[in-house]
Design a protein around this nucleic acid. Structure first.
Lengths: 215, 215
DNA sequence: CAGCTCATGTTAGCGGCCCTAACATGGTGA
DNA sequence: TCACCATGTTAGGGCCGCTAACATGAGCTG
């Protein structure tokens, strides 16, 4: 019941009606264009068409909004990784390639989310929601690691958790150092995506996994 | 000539005498304890015992001080890496291990420097000094990569630049995600240093390099 | 040593931000 | 119908970045 407010989108009364979502969208826009530090509570309010004090009805302070953005980012991240991994179909190597590319694509295409998640200095335990969202995203990597490992003979299997951490570290390192479109960082002889792919292939080979067939 | 002002350290007149250095030290302290965003131009001035406007005689704005801190950080970083690598002595594997541990030790022991260098959002081309300092630090990694590669048969040598980028990405990924002492990030089943070491061993094995003998 | 000059300090102040307190509005359920 | 309270408002304190105008004194010049 009560379909009174569904989509209308434009604020029109004394009450905005959807301010929390509007603030998140505004924050994403501002972080995306000016970095996580350039983002301002007051400006987000302005963009949403409300007074500077209104956001405090929805978030304790600026950091809580940032944490919410980060949590939503981790949820979207988990989604993107899950879609890319697709439970290892059609084969593990192909799926793993998609996973790596999806990681970088997310960092590249959703810089605001990625910034809030990893670069804004938001403590992971700012809220249980944030921690859980981050945990679920990481489980995607761990899941992929476990599937890859299962192709190895039992005696030569590394710990899945360690392998997942390696994958994450390499992916984040490439994304953070070389993955941004804008200037300011080092020019590369290859794309960040190719760099990560090459690095992961070497790493997998070091584990004894066969070279991919989906190159 | 003019050893008029060498060490005295304590400000005593109308003129501070060593304000620029004092500001850098203050910035390092503040960044170290409150993160790169918590750092404030005014508070650095207060710590140095001068008025809030004094820093503007030495830095155009807050960002320029941050860039200076980052540049000094890269210089110290280069130094630490060079000392650890020690031109590959006594053997390449041992030296490479020291290099990896030195990378994480720097991120761990000099969090303020590392933050300013990689997490404060300072654009690499904020100044030529900064860019050069970063470049020289990176050359340490590249140097190590080249030496490692030279042990491979000519037909199987990867590009040194790519390998250096992989080393950097993995190291930075581990440092950024797991290398901090304070809470907020994921608890690990192993130390960040061991995690990086294991990852690099697997990576090197994937390149065909022999397992180390300095474990 | 006298005096000038300019690097390096000072105070005053504008505008913006974070956040709180006190008040206003109007949607919702009894 | 109407009272309640979630969600908006204005006002304002304190801090910050930064600029303008002024003050000090270190060191050169003669």
């Amino acid at each position: 019941m009560s379909w009174k407010r569904n989509e209308p989108e434009q604020p029109r009364g004394y009450h905005h009606g959807n301010l929390k979502e509007a603030l998140v969208r505004a924050a994403l826009g501002l972080i995306g264009e000016k970095g996580p530090n350039g983002f301002t509570f007051a400006e987000a309010a302005r963009m949403a068409g409300v007074s500077p004090a209104a956001p405090y009805r929805h978030y304790r302070d600026r950091d809580e909004l940032l944490a919410d953005v980060a949590a939503r980012g981790f949820a979207a991240f988990e989604d993107a990784l899950a879609k890319a991994w697709d439970e290892g179909r059609p084969d593990v190597e192909t799926a793993f390639h998609r996973l790596g590319r999806a990681y970088l694509a997310f960092a590249h295409d959703q810089p605001a989310f990625y910034s809030a998640m990893f670069e804004a200095g938001v403590p992971l335990d700012a809220s249980p929601e944030l921690r859980n969202a981050a945990e679920r995203a990481f489980q995607q990597l761990r899941q992929a690691a476990e599937t890859l490992i299962s192709a190895l003979p039992p005696g030569k299997r590394p710990p899945a958790l360690m392998m997942a951490l390696h994958i994450w570290a390499m992916s984040h390192g490439v994304a953070a150092l070389f993955g941004r479109a804008d200037g300011g960082r080092r020019p590369l002889p290859m794309s960040a995506s190719d760099l990560l792919e090459a690095g992961m292939l070497i790493y997998l080979k070091g584990l004894g996994l066969p070279p991919d067939k989906a190159g």
